[in-house]
Design a protein around this nucleic acid. Structure first.
Lengths: 336, 336
DNA sequence: CTGAAAGCGCTTACAG
DNA sequence: CTGAAAGCGCTTACAG
C-alpha cells in the first residue's frame, strides 16, 4: 500500500524511532540524520497514517464542523464554511462535515468514535438541545451563535442585536418616525435560531427607544412575498418612511416591491439592511447598512476552537464582533 | 477515556473477538450472546475507535469532498454539499471537506495519509490539472463535472449543454430570431469550469442551428453589471427579442435592467434561464427555463463513488442528468 | 544523539 | 458457535 515509517527508516539507514522523532520534533536530532531522513520521506512520498497516529496519540487533527443544511438552503452559510475550512487547513487541521439534521446524536457518535478532536457548531438556537451533549463532550468546542445559556462554552458571533439597533438608530437620526422590519422566513423563527431573534430584538428595542412606529413580519425570498409584505406594512403604517430588511436573498425583491408600490428610494422610503457586503452593493440603489463579516467570523471561530480548553469553564464570555454601519444610496433624512 | 471492545467483552462476559464479530457481522453468533453483547454496547455507550479500525482494516468510511471555495462564493455549491453529506451519512459514511484552492497536492496528502476511502470532486475544469493525481490514486473517485478527457474516471453532471440548447430551441420554437446570452462572471470562464463552458456552447450551437442572431457576454451579479450587459446587447442586436440568463444571482437584476430599459417581459422580450428552481419561481414574472437538480446530482454522486471501483477503467461513460424545460411567465411567441 | 520495545484498539485468520 | 493471538503503523517512555 502506502509507505510506512519502517520503510523510510530502512531507506535512510536509521531506526524507526529516529524517523518518528524527526516527524514529531520531540527529540534533538543531528543535522546529518535529519537531512537523510527528510530526503527519504521525500523520495518515498511518505505520509503518516492518520489512523495509526490517532490510535497512538489520541489526537486526530480533525475539527468537526456542524452545518445546518436545512431547506431552503441558507446560502449565507457558505462563506462561513469556506473561512473555517481555510483557517483550519492553514493550521494543519482537517474538517469533517456534520449535518445538524441529526442533532446531538450525530455529534455524540462522531466524538465517541474519536474522529475529531474538537467541534465548531455553526447555527445555534436560543434554546439549543445540543448544549448538554456539547458540555459533556470533554473536547474543545466553539459555538458560532450565542444561546440563551452558554453553559460556559466558548461562543462567538457577529453582534446581530447591535447591528440591527445601529440600522434603526441611523434611521431615527435621519428623522424617520416609522420603520417596518422585514425579516427571515417564518421557518427560521420557528427553529429559534439565535441570530435571527437577536436582530429582531435589537431593531425593536431601538425603535422603541427612539419612539418610532414599528411593525414586523417574516418574509420569504420571493417577489410575491415581498410584494405582500410591503403592502401589509403600508396598510399598518400608512405614513411609513423607512424599511429595514434582514433577509439577504429577498433584498432585491424588496426594492422592486417598493418601486412598484410607487415608492422612490430614498426619496419616499429609506431602506437599510444587514447582509453580506456583495448583496448590499449589488443592488440599485446600493443599500446602506451593516455587512456581515462572515470570513472574519469563520476564521475567528477556527482559531478559537484550536486554543479552547476542553469542556465548559464558568468565566468564558461570548465574543461579539462589532457592527459597522456604512452609508450608501438607499437612505436620506426625512423631508429633505 | 472512551470505552473499548475489551471493556465491553468483560461486561458482557464474552471474548473480545466475539464482540468484534457482533459488530462486523462476519461470523454467525448465537442469539443469546448477541443480545448480551448488544446490551453491553448500549450500557457502556461503546463506539468503535475510528483510527484503530482504519489502521486494521484500511477502511475509514470517510469520503473526501473537494469543494471550490472561490470568491465570490458560488452559492449554488451549497445544495450539492448538503445532498452529498446527507446521502453519505445515510449510507454510514462521513464527509471530510477539502478545499480546491490547494489543488492536487491537498488531495494527494489526504489520500496518502489514509484519511479517506474515496473522493468526490465538485467542480471540474475542462482541462483539469487534478486528473493525473486522481487517476493515480487507486481509490474510488466520482467527478461532478465532465472534463475534456475523463481518463476513464466516473463522471456525473447535469446536462448543462443540453439544458442551454433546450432553452434556446424553445425560444426558436416561439419564433424568436435573436437571443442574447448573459453568462457567468468572467472569472468563471477564466478558470475553465466545465459546466459554464458547456452551457455556453449548447446555447451557441442551438442559436446557430436555428439561424438566430446571437451575442454573449460574461456578467457579474450586480444591477450595475446587468444594466451594462443589457445595454450592450441592445446595441449589438437592436432587434433583440429574447434573453437567456445563466447566472442565478444576477437573474432578478436582469429582469429589472430590462424593465428599466423600457422592455416589458414577456411582451417585448422573452427571458429563459438555467438556475435552481427557487430562483426561477421567486421572481416576477416567474422565469421559464430549466432548473438544476442539485440534490439529485449530489445524491447520485455519493452513490456513484460508493459503488465505483478504484482507479480508471476504459469503458466508464460519463452520466448526464437530463434537463427538463418548464414554461412559466417570462416568454411568449414572437409577435403574438 | 540513537535504538529496541511496548502498546494504542481494532479485525481476522487460526484453532477448537 | 467461540476464544487466544498476531499485527495494522504509529509514539514515547526506557535504556544506552
Amino acid at each position: 500500500m502506502s509507505t510506512t515509517i519502517a520503510q523510510v527508516a530502512r531507506y535512510a539507514g536509521v531506526s524507526p524511532s529516529t524517523v518518528s522523532y524527526v516527524l514529531t520534533g520531540n527529540r534533538p536530532i543531528s543535522e546529518a540524520t535529519r537531512t537523510r531522513v527528510e530526503a527519504a520521506i521525500r523520495d518515498l512520498k511518505y505520509r503518516p497514517h492518520a489512523g495509526a497516529r490517532s490510535l497512538r496519540s489520541s489526537r486526530t487533527n480533525v475539527i468537526g464542523l456542524v452545518v445546518p443544511f436545512h431547506r431552503p438552503h441558507d446560502v449565507s452559510a457558505l462563506p462561513f464554511i469556506g473561512a473555517i475550512a481555510a483557517a483550519s487547513y492553514a493550521k494543519g487541521f482537517n474538517v469533517l462535515l456534520l449535518t445538524a439534521d441529526r442533532g446531538a446524536a450525530e455529534i455524540d457518535r462522531v466524538v465517541r468514535s474519536a474522529m475529531v478532536d474538537s467541534l465548531i457548531v455553526l447555527q445555534i438556537n436560543l434554546h439549543d438541545d445540543r448544549m448538554e451533549v456539547l458540555t459533556d463532550l470533554d473536547r474543545p468546542v466553539a459555538l458560532i451563535g450565542i444561546p440563551d445559556d452558554t453553559h460556559g462554552l466558548p461562543c462567538i458571533d457577529f453582534d446581530f442585536h447591535g447591528a440591527a439597533a445601529l440600522c434603526v438608530a441611523h434611521l431615527a437620526d435621519l428623522g424617520h418616525r416609522s420603520v417596518a422590519y422585514l425579516g427571515q422566513p417564518q421557518l427560521m423563527y420557528d427553529r429559534g435560531t439565535a441570530y435571527v431573534q437577536r436582530a429582531l430584538e435589537g431593531a425593536r428595542e431601538a425603535a422603541e427607544r427612539h419612539d418610532m412606529s414599528w411593525s414586523t413580519q417574516p418574509c420569504e425570498a420571493t417577489r410575491a412575498a415581498t410584494d405582500r409584505a410591503i403592502r401589509d406594512a403600508l396598510v399598518r403604517q400608512p405614513d411609513l418612511t423607512s424599511v429595514m430588511v434582514f433577509n439577504e436573498p429577498a433584498l432585491p425583491h424588496v426594492l422592486e416591491s417598493l418601486a412598484s408600490s410607487g415608492k422612490r428610494i430614498p426619496e419616499d422610503i429609506s431602506v437599510v439592511s444587514i447582509a453580506n457586503e456583495a448583496a448590499l452593493t449589488g443592488t440599485r440603489p446600493a443599500v446602506s447598512g451593516v455587512s456581515i463579516p462572515a470570513e472574519e467570523l469563520g476564521t475567528a471561530a477556527a482559531e478559537m476552537v484550536l486554543s479552547a480548553p476542553a469542556g465548559p469553564s464558568p468565566d468564558t464570555e461570548p465574543v461579539l464582533l462589532p457592527p459597522i454601519f456604512v452609508r450608501r444610496d438607499s437612505d436620506m433624512p426625512l423631508g429633505s
